[in-house]
Computed example of a mutant assay.
Amino acid sequence: MATPELLNIGERVRQHFAAELASRNYTADAAQQAASAHLADWLERFLSSRKSWLRRHSAGVYIWGDVGRGKSFVMDAFFAAVPIAEKRRVHFHAFLQELQRRMRDYAGQADPLALVAREIARDVRLMCFDEFHVHDIGDAMLLGRMLKVLVDEGVGLVMTSNYKPERLCPNPLYRERFKPVIALIEQRFDICALDGGIDYRQWTNENTVWGRYVWPESKGGQARVQALLDFSENAVTDTTLNVNHHPLKVSAYEGERIWFDFHDLCGQPHSTADYIWIIEQFPQLAISGLNTLAGETEAVRQRFLNLVDIAYDRGVYLILCSEVPMDELAGEKTIDFSRTLSRLRQLKPEAL
């Protein structure tokens, strides 16, 4: 029997979603309302049920849709309304780094991944993943096995993604190995499409601006970046930092502000762990030397996308300085860059 504090959970989630909308003077579209209601109904079933061999409930909810449709807003409102303390909301990249770090604590033992997953399951009853997507097969296999253990241990999972489950791993070289993960999601999760037809991130206002986009660099962009960073004569310039035990060239840094050239930061083989380290140390980040990404390798483009994902999620103040306007940055667009471009459009543009 459900405990008193767990009664009317679905209604609690619905009321909180309505209150969040009212506080922001928003009106939810039909798809957002449906997704919120689906989450509310699932949570009530999940928290009030016991494990049973005769009746297996959905392990979670997988919400997918195009960029800017309000997936993160819906999940944030849902997460805040969940009436339990044993809950976590994590971003894809940050969780991967945590997973790899915790696995090192079990080095030398049988199946460190399963040990970490069960450790997480002891502390967490609900896990929410934002921006779930896969590009690296090593990450894919780690996440896939982790999801299976969490599901088997009874942890509830809610995920948002720009991809339908069958498109989570588009690289044909990896697809066969990733099929069991896709099957797990399709068989054990409620699949909820959120596509209201409007990119709400294009409704940029002063409350959503998270940085600047300055162009063209050749007309004084670097001088403008320096002015925005407000470096003093004590700033360290043209130096090298030791990031995760390997060198990274830096144009300048002072206090919590740092400035990189694009090709030093994204043109070299740096990992998401490197970017997380930088952002944790320097919450004001400037990058100059950007040009159209069409001429860059897939690895360079992917590093840039990962960096923007992490910076956006961690609330960094980002300054980008490019030779081209934002809409020409991508060259040919992919679904991943559409997500990134949607986030970049929340930077305040400065045409010189």
Results as ranks from 00 to 15, higher is better:
L7T: 07
A80R: 07
W210C: 13
L290C: 10
Y62D: 05
H263V: 08
D238Q: 14
D195M: 07
L168G: 09
A193G: 07
E44P: 04
L344C: 09
K87E: 07
A273G: 12
S36W: 00
E256D: 14
R339Y: 10
T3N: 08
V158L: 05
T240F: 04
K51P: 08
E296T: 13
R14P: 00
P112T: 09
P325V: 13
G60T: 04
I137H: 02
N306L: 10
A40I: 01
V151H: 03
D261K: 10
F262G: 09
R55V: 14
P165N: 11
G10D: 03
A94S: 12
N244K: 11
R102F: 06
D336W: 01
R339S: 10
A34R: 13
D274T: 11
F260T: 07
E186Y: 01
S52E: 05
V151Q: 02
S72W: 01
Q302P: 00
S52K: 09
D264V: 06
P172H: 10
C192E: 10
A34E: 07
A311C: 14
V181N: 02
L54N: 10
L241F: 09
M127N: 03
D41V: 12
R24L: 13
R12G: 12
V124F: 00
Y163R: 14
S218W: 00
T239W: 02
S23T: 06
Y312Q: 07
A2R: 06
G255W: 03
F95C: 08
D139C: 10
L341I: 10
D238K: 12
L285N: 03
M141L: 15
E206S: 14
E11N: 12
R345W: 02
R257P: 05
A34G: 06
H133R: 12
G108R: 04
A252T: 04
R125D: 08
S322Y: 03
A252P: 00
C321V: 04
R167N: 15
A294C: 07
A34S: 13
Q284N: 12
R89L: 14
G70D: 02
M141H: 07
L229K: 06
L307I: 09
R50K: 14
H135W: 03
S342A: 15
L320Q: 01
N306P: 00
S322G: 13
D123A: 15
D111P: 03
E280Y: 01
N162M: 05
S49N: 08
Y200V: 12
G197K: 07
E206N: 11
E131T: 08
N8A: 15
L318G: 05
A330I: 03
R303Q: 09
T208H: 04
V116S: 05
R167D: 15
G295D: 13
L99Y: 03
